[in-house]
Design a protein around this nucleic acid. Sequence first.
DNA 1: TTGTAGGCGTTATCAG
DNA 2: CTGATAACGCCTACAA
Lengths: 344, 344
Amino acid sequence: VRITIKDVARQAGVSVATVSRVLNDSGPVREETRERIREVAARLRYTPDVAARSLITRRTHTVGVVLPDLYGEFFSEVIRGIDRATQQRGYHMLVSSSHADAGEFESALRAMRGRVDGLVVMAPDIDPAALAAIVPDALPVVMLGCAVGARDGGDATPDSITVDNAGGAHAMTRHLLAHGHRRLAMLTGPAGNHDAAERLRGYRAALAEAGLAADPVYEVPGGFTEAGGEEGARALLALAPRPTAVFAANDAMAIGAMGAFRAAGVRVPDDVAVAGFDDIPIARYVTPALSSVRVDLGALGARAVGRLLRAVAGGGGAAEPRHETLPTAVVARGSCGEHADGGA
Amino acid sequence: VRITIKDVARQAGVSVATVSRVLNDSGPVREETRERIREVAARLRYTPDVAARSLITRRTHTVGVVLPDLYGEFFSEVIRGIDRATQQRGYHMLVSSSHADAGEFESALRAMRGRVDGLVVMAPDIDPAALAAIVPDALPVVMLGCAVGARDGGDATPDSITVDNAGGAHAMTRHLLAHGHRRLAMLTGPAGNHDAAERLRGYRAALAEAGLAADPVYEVPGGFTEAGGEEGARALLALAPRPTAVFAANDAMAIGAMGAFRAAGVRVPDDVAVAGFDDIPIARYVTPALSSVRVDLGALGARAVGRLLRAVAGGGGAAEPRHETLPTAVVARGSCGEHADGGA
DNA sequence: TTGTAGGCGTTATCAG
DNA sequence: CTGATAACGCCTACAA
């Protein structure tokens, strides 16, 4: 019962070649014929078979998205940006998470082979050079927030877009210092995670500039999760003297930390100031509103798609800059003492 | 440079038919030959071309997911469940959001034609019967949380899985009543949204059972968003007398409302109790921790996939129940006065 | 147990 | 401007 191009051709009294020419408008067709074909195709509700088409075209009109996980608003916003961008350009989005496992990551990539025209990959703990080896064929790839820039020039590392992690952390730390805090602590991300490392670096640099030593005791890991932040905050509470400000390397940990503080009867921001990173949507709605480093996650995803599709179309001839860094901005809200009138 | 089945056949000294038989193990092949072919295929890193294969198989090994939006933890959790389930069964996930627009919804559905073996569709404000008309061919469809059950029997409405919205709302309302509240308010979801309507229904039923009149003034719309909840809470604050408990039809609104209360100097739960619905992961981490109606969003997505794939395999012969309702559970936390030791 | 050959629905290359 | 016809890479009767 499937309607093929042959049916359209027959009913329109032409050959399949002509129908194909009309539908892709490749090649010249008399206007009259063209209309007739269009009309028949519409009447028959003809839709080209994507499999057959991509068998010969070698194009799928789909971008693959590989993320470490799909948990929380962080990934949610990135996907959202990618979805918007792909949809707008008539592309589709094949999503897969690698559940923070190295093996699954590889198999997720491999499984995308032949199903996508290009890949948007977020893998903060994978070496981008190593990735080049895994990725099938010569598929265009854009990485999101990986360890780039480092000794570039080699064509081995794929394109990438990242946010200004170090700069943002630096700015937020300075903000905290400007508020008079002298005993800062940081809830750090997972070891091996590039974004986490950069954020820590920015924090330390700002401390050093202020003439403060970065005491490792005040740097406690939180694994980028709410639960980790909760635990980390409890560890911080056990310290003497306690820090007067806690900078979490992402919002999830910051929110977890605030919960732990509340449970312990420690008031935010009066007893301890809290700040996060990413500025996920919920940040401005928690109590008190969470100060954070704003990152346009949606734009991050959307830009990645833009660049990817340009590479797909351009056939590899890339005159663009290979690496791009998105700016960040400190957003001060109630959690670090800003007047709590909603923030934002 | 593409390696095809022919290359494998030649190098193994057999015909393509035999190679195909080995790779899909369909049909008998001598064990010795089988191993040789496997070995050659591995050495050549041969991967079957998905387009060619699905051209003849009429299978894509992909499920399509159409959601109204991708914003927030609600959808995030559902997608996560779907991802887990699909990945586990060797399937892929093609995601698309319809941005709450009716036209985009249709085109999103249409665009999936030929790219997927089945569809998981969430469209709380679409009539499921109407959907049956839109969906291409005889693609298996599982709906998530739509207006089902209603005058069933007709084969026109697709399979569906929903959560016990009315029951959950009823239970939460009873919980609030049991805590002594007599002046309740509800922040309702978007008009026309099925889940929202059901939750409102459950709330009203519980009030009626308690002999309380459901005053429409105390039912204010919040559009399922944080901003809407914020606004709604402000409206509630303007009322005299004020409600002593606010039940939001989802967690996003509840969190927005808590922000508005804080900004207005109204304490939660001392001055007003707050409860939400869905129990998104962040709920237990906000301050105070949010009481909510627990829904296993991940399981919702995962079950949908399970059922869908069974339908795909079964070729349409469905002896299963067509509609399924997932249970809910009240989770009491600090926001409605429960002892605030973390909750859950 | 294995090979031959036809066809899946398109696009693309030639002739006319 | 239009029409045959050969790929594209794979699966699957049917035959051997």
